Simulated assay, not measured.
Amino acid sequence: MEFSTIWLFVIATTALLIMPGPAVFYIMARSIDQGKKAGLVSVLGVSLGGAVHVLAGAIGVSAILMTSATAFTIVKYLGAIYLIYLGCKTLLSASGENHSENPKMNDKKLWKIFYESVIVEVMNPKTALFFLAFFPQFITPASGSVPVQFLLLGTIFIILAFINDSLYAILAANIRKWIVRKKGHSKVMNRVTGYLYIILGIFSAFASPSKT
């Protein structure tokens, strides 16, 4: 691929990433609910989920998913149900739970946050749809293997998204610190994160393969 094409892709991707999407709101919800460490672990999970979509797009699996209304519907509802489940679980959690930043968060809890984040991203068919709609605009068959170009653009996208998402995770962690200083912060954080998950779940449920 020509350097000018890659540079144009970087500029376009950066402009798109600045506007927060479902993944960013999910990561911010994690940071507000469980702190910066949990938010950054969520970023890693979402990045791995994005890598799965990139690989699937490169080998054509995503294209099959997008052409099958049944497959798309199954995946989007599974993802939506999972997000709504996380939201309800958060809203029902004990309001008296200690939400202070916990630097000693154990590996088991971090691992759970990680794989939940991977599931949330993998089960989001809008990500696959976005990659299939956006990447081909910068791919030229004459420049070489299309799958290789797709993987290259996907790698660049994931790196930029990782940086962007990490900044949002840190921002949300700072918002958490502000909330913690307020009276009744546990209830506030439970409600904010719980409703964010539910809203994301509803948004996912109404995702359409005909829209980007």
Rank of each mutant, 00 (worst) to 15 (best):
S4K: 14
S42H: 06
I159M: 04
M19R: 07
M19C: 10
N102V: 02
T90N: 00
T67F: 05
L171H: 01
T73G: 10
L17G: 11
P20Q: 06
T5L: 08
L65Y: 01
S204V: 08
T193H: 06
I11Y: 01
R30N: 05
W111L: 15
Y82F: 13
V122I: 15
P125F: 07
T193R: 11
I199L: 11
R176H: 00
A161Q: 08
I199M: 10
T90M: 06
S208Y: 08
A38G: 04
F162H: 02
Y77A: 09
V52L: 08
K211A: 13
K126P: 03
V46I: 13
V52S: 02
S210W: 15
K36D: 09
L16D: 11
V118W: 01
V54M: 03
V75F: 03
M1V: 08
L160K: 12
V43W: 03
G21A: 06
I156G: 01
L171T: 02
I32H: 04
L44N: 05
L167I: 14
F25A: 12
F25H: 14
L65T: 08
V122D: 09
L167H: 05
S68K: 02
F157R: 02
M105I: 09
K108S: 14
L151Y: 05
I158Y: 03
V120K: 09
K36H: 06
S95I: 10
I84K: 15
F162M: 10
V10G: 00
M1G: 11
I113R: 11
G96I: 01
W111T: 15
G50N: 13
S93L: 08
A15V: 10
Q34R: 15
K187P: 00
N102H: 03
L65K: 07
F162Y: 06
N174C: 04
I199V: 15
P136G: 05
C88S: 13
Y197C: 07
E116L: 11
R181H: 09
T90Y: 04
I199R: 10
M1H: 02
L78W: 08
S166T: 14
S95V: 05
K108V: 08
N98G: 04
F138T: 04
H99G: 12
F150S: 00
I163P: 09
L78F: 13
M123E: 10
E2D: 12
E101H: 12
M189L: 11
E97P: 07
N164D: 07
A142E: 13
W178N: 15
M66Y: 05
I156F: 06
I74W: 09
F135Y: 08
S210E: 15
K126G: 03
A173S: 15
L196S: 14
L8C: 08
F3K: 14
Y195A: 13
G154A: 01
L200I: 06
G87L: 05
F203A: 12
I170S: 01
I113Y: 09
I81K: 04
T127F: 09
G79N: 04
I59W: 14
V146D: 05
I199W: 06
A161K: 04
F72W: 03
A71F: 03
L86C: 06
F157Q: 07
S166I: 01
V146I: 12
K108G: 03
G39I: 04
